[in-house]
Structures are given as C-alpha cells and as structure tokens.
Design a protein around this nucleic acid. Structure first.
Lengths: 330, 330
DNA sequence: CTGAAAGCGCTTACAG
DNA sequence: CTGAAAGCGCTTACAG
C-alpha cells in the first residue's frame, strides 16, 4: 500500500541506492547502461521518492505557506488563487493557513510550518507584535501590507487609493464625507485613512472617521445606527467592499436613495461589488496580479535568484471603478 | 537560527536521547529527578521536536488535507473555515489545496500529500475517474458529495432540496419552471436535478433543464441569451447561488421584474444571497455544521475511534429561506 | 562511473 | 528506570 522505497529500486536494478539517488536527482555521473536499468526499475515499481526523507536531509520541502487572516473575506481567496497558480507552476506546494486574525493561531501555524521546513512564507495578516518574522529560518514576504522596508512586500497604493476615492466624492458634489475605516492594526487601513484625511484637509473640510471590522454584518449594524437619526453625511468612503456592502444594505433598509442622497465607495474590487444593487463603485486593486507577483518574488528569493539591488517593496497602482453607488463625473 | 535538536537537550541534561524522547512523548518510565533535569534543559534551550524527523519515523504528520475545487466560490471557504476550526482544536494542521477542478492538479496534490504522510484527506471535488481514492494509505472523507456508500461522507439532502425548491415555486403559482443545473460530474448537482424532475413529473409538468458552470459570469451570459428573446419561463431553480446571482443580474438588465414576472431560487445559502437585490431566496445548507462534522468524523477515523457500525454517510437536512426573489407563500 | 559509509533528527524495541 | 543500537528513506562527500 505504501510507496516503494529507493532500496527496492536499487535491488531490482542491481545497483546501489546512491546510484538510484543520482538518477532521480539527475545529479552526478551515471553510466548510460546503468541509467537505463535504473529508469526501467523505477518505471516497473512505479517509484516516486519519499518527500519526508528528502526534507529531513535537505531541510527543504518545496512548500510555501500562506497565512490568511480571514478566508471568508473574498479578497483573500482571490489573492490566494493567484499565489497558488504561480506556486504550482514553479513546482511548489502551497499550504493555506487560515488564522482568523487570532495571534495564538498565527503563532502556532508559524511554529508548525517552521518545523515542517517550509521554504518560504507569505503573510497577509495584520500586525502581530508577538511574532518576529525576521528571525525565521526562511524568506518571508508581506502581501497587502508593508512591514518593514527591508523585507519583501507586495501591496497596492493604499494612500493614493484613499485620495482618489475622496477626490471623486468631492468632484461629484459631496462635502460631508464619512470614512469608515478598517482595524487599526491593519496598515493598509491606516494608509487609506491617511489619503482621505489629506484630501479633506486640503479642501478645508472636516474629516469624520469611524472604525469598523472588515465584515458586512458589523458594517450593517453600524450603518443602521447611523441612519436611525437624520443622515448627517452625503457620502461614505468605506475601508473595503464588505463594509460598503453592509452600509449599503442598511441604507436601503432606511430608504436612503443611493447615490442621490448618499454616495458610497468601497475598496478592493472583489466580485461581490457587481452583485449589490446598485453595483458598488470601488477602488480596484489588481488582486490577481498582486498574488502572482508575491509568489514570483518569494520563490525567486528562495532560489536566490533575486538581485541584491532589487527593490523590496512592490506597490501596484489602483483605480476607481465607477458603478452605481456614485454619481457619474461630468 | 534553526531549532535545537534532541541531542543538545540530551547533552545539557546529561542523559541519553532516548530519555529526552520519553519525556517529550510522555511515554515510558522516567525518574522524577531525571524528568526535572530534562524539562529544565528543554525550557532553557527552548526546544521543540523536529516534526519532519518524527514524521519519517511514525509515518504520520498530524496534518489533514482538504481538496477544494474552487476557492473563489464562497461556499467552499465557508466549509473550509469550519473544517479548519475543528482540525485546529483537535491538534491537526490543515493543508488547503485549491485544484481549480483540474484533474491533473488534483492528482499531483494527492501524490504530494501522500508523500508528506497526511493522516487523512477531505475531498470536496467532483468526480475524477483518474483517482482511486480507496487505495490511499490514509482515511478519506467526501464532503458535499457521496462517493460510495462504504466511504465516509458528509453532505446534505440534495434531492430533497431540489424537491422543496420546485414545490415552493409551484405553490407560489409558477408553472413554467426552468432548472439550471451544475456540471454533470458533480453528484450533488445531479441529485438536485432529480428532485426537480420528480416534482415536475408528479405534477404533469414539462421539465426544462439547462447546464451551467457554478460561476456567476457563465450564468449571467446564459441568462442574457435566455432573456434576449421573449421570456419563456416564470421561474428558475438555479443549481447554486452563484448561478442564481448571475441570472438575476441578467434579468435586471432586461428589466424583468423579479419575483413578479420571474421567480428565482438559489442553492447553498452563501453570504452573497443577502447582498443581491432583491435578496436571493435559497435552499440553505447547514454549511458550517457540515464542515465541522466532516472534520470530526475524519479525525475519529484517523484515531480509530470510529465505531465499526457507525454509518458512513451523514446527510444533513436543508431548508428554504424565503427572501426577495420569490413570492411569499400564503 | 559506482559503492560503502555516515548522517539528517527522531523513536522504539531490547537489554540491563 | 535508563542507555546503546538500529532504523525511518533519503543524500552527499569520499574513495576507488
């Protein structure tokens, strides 16, 4: 039932295990005749090498880990899909670890992965002061978050995204703009808020910021509490699409007309945006490209193919996708 | 940088490696004094055992694999989340493998996982004739799909779900009901279609079935081609929520009034249903419970705690959630 | 070009 | 109660 071992192949081919090893690794000299014998034996026995034994020796696993803060936020699976595609193409197995933003879980996963000799790790999680990622015995890369200039990271221009959204709302006539931002330990949430604040300040308008988790339900509740009284705002820039969708639900419940009385802009550009009604205007991140880039860079780093001088922070541009929750620009 | 080894601990505590091993495994006799010395050494060196070496010896990894056909279909992440929670609680690491329904990828993953000594595997994939899952050297469980009566499986009552949906549409006055079913190699899609057909037949109505992938975009295109001409149907029972959402988008584009002119019922009960407009009526599966049950059963099987007589097929009931895309029952 | 040997870090009979 | 030995399945210097 269990796979055959190198010993059986060696016996069958009448050579030493070392020779078989040379053949399967295509490494070192092997006589032409010997090669044939060994290949035949491998084929007959349908042999494939035991990865665990190889790992133990090489301290490598051909595996990369991906830490996901919340697998039910569609933004992350979309990113994971791209990472997976590249990893697979380049011969790496991807281990997805869903941490639910729980620092304990995260720590546990990192420890487990270390012991399993992952060759690299992509981290999409928010800050966790408990974990010092730079002491890990393998390369790491931060995706959708910049951790430290010296560590690899792939993200998009969040501050710029915040500016674009806010400016658009101003240009379409809104003045009382509320920003519902994501959690404070999420660096991208803070950057988006900075973009918003900068633009409001430049226009001498009062900034209004509220906090919310990246979840539709929380945003829906927040929205209801907001709309229960008179509506004080004529536009909302939401920290991500889930928040935007939740607020939109609440607005509809209170029969606030979107975008006429209230404009809404989301952030990320997940598939959900197309299914709300009206469809969500959003700041689109190049999600798939970011995931691909992350995998490519990490693997290059693992294989030491990264140029010393190659800049470590990769930041993609974002764009506003005008849909139904904002007024068209004229 | 790399973790300490058992040898260093042994040296530090002045005992043999075997003794240290006994301590960390809490197995065999260890003198009280010795125990203390060893524990102190472990603490001082911050030692944790190398999992790979253990794996090699034990041919176990404390890891279970989860094959996901499409990580961007929210149904699967919701399921995965539950599996993960239970696995973690019971001390197993979960490896998520996204196969994109590609048989080659699936095969590759299964081979890799086998070599990495996973202790068990949960399969959410559709049929793949290339892989004979019963020859694997570890327990397997099919989630959201029944493979074979003798193999563990967790699913919900799909045929019954098909019946419930169809009957509801009839009771609310529809007669020309179209069923847009999922792929033919997905057993649950076939079961749902059977439920539909059974009810239509019993009521002497003509069954109309069309095929579609489980994806909004494909359904949207299908919907458009359907609504371009006169609308022949007054209700659509969709194979899953993504199809329902896609069709709904198309219906809105053609200004077909839902549910007055056209009723729509989805299937699964993913979060998306609440965000469409009108909100989607759907057949709700107990997604989280199914995921939990799957993990519990598989791990029980791995640890040989399963009663011989315990039935291997677990099927959960489903229920119709009445929302905006169908008329209320009176 | 090929084999014998040692070792990756652990665990488990087997003695004592 | 504890240690020496062998082995999990592989790979890599080192001889020859």
């Amino acid at each position: 039932m269990f796979p055959t071992t190198i010993r059986e192949v060696a016996k069958r081919a009448n050579v030493s295990e070392a020779t078989v090893s040379r053949v399967i690794n295509k490494k070192g000299y092997v006589g032409k005749e010997t090669l044939k014998k060994v290949e035949a034996a491998i084929a007959e026995l349908n042999y494939t090498p035991n990865e665990v034994a190889r790992m133990l020796f090489k301290k490598k696993s051909n595996t990369i880990g991906l830490l996901i803060p919340d697998i039910t936020n569609p933004f992350f699976p979309e990113l994971a899909k791209a990472v997976e595609a590249v990893a697979q193409r380049l011969g790496y197995l991807l281990i997805l670890c869903n941490t639910e933003s729980n620092p304990e879980t995260e720590k546990k996963y990192v420890r487990e992965l270390t012991h399993k000799y992952v060759d690299g790790l992509i981290i999409m999680n928010q800050n966790n002061e408990d974990i010092t990622y730079d002491e890990l015995p393998f390369p790491t890369l931060f995706l959708d978050r910049v951790h430290d200039k010296r560590v690899l990271s792939v993200s998009s221009q969040n501050k710029e995204g915040g500016r674009i959204a806010t400016e658009y709302l101003l240009q379409t006539g809104s003045k009382r703009i509320l920003h519902i931002r994501g959690p404070h330990n999420v660096t991208t949430a803070t950057e988006r808020a900075e973009g918003y604040q900068e633009v409001m300040k430049k226009n001498n308008l009062a900034a209004h910021v509220m906090d919310c988790d990246y979840a539709t339900e929380a945003a829906y509740q927040l929205g209801k509490s907001l709309f229960k009284k008179a509506v004080e705002y004529d536009a909302i820039f939401a920290g991500n699409d889930l928040i935007a969708a939740g607020v939109l639900m609440a607005a509809k419940e209170y029969q606030i007309s979107v975008p006429d009385e209230l404009q809404i802009i989301g952030y990320d550009g997940i598939d959900l945006c197309k299914h709300t009604s009206p469809q969500l205007t959003t700041i689109q991140q190049p999600i798939y490209k970011m995931g691909e880039q992350a995998a490519i860079l990490l693997i290059a780093q693992i294989e030491n193919q990264l140029q010393e001088k190659e800049s470590s922070s990769h930041s993609f541009p974002v764009e506003l996708i005008q849909r139904g929750t904002t007024k068209p620009l004229r």
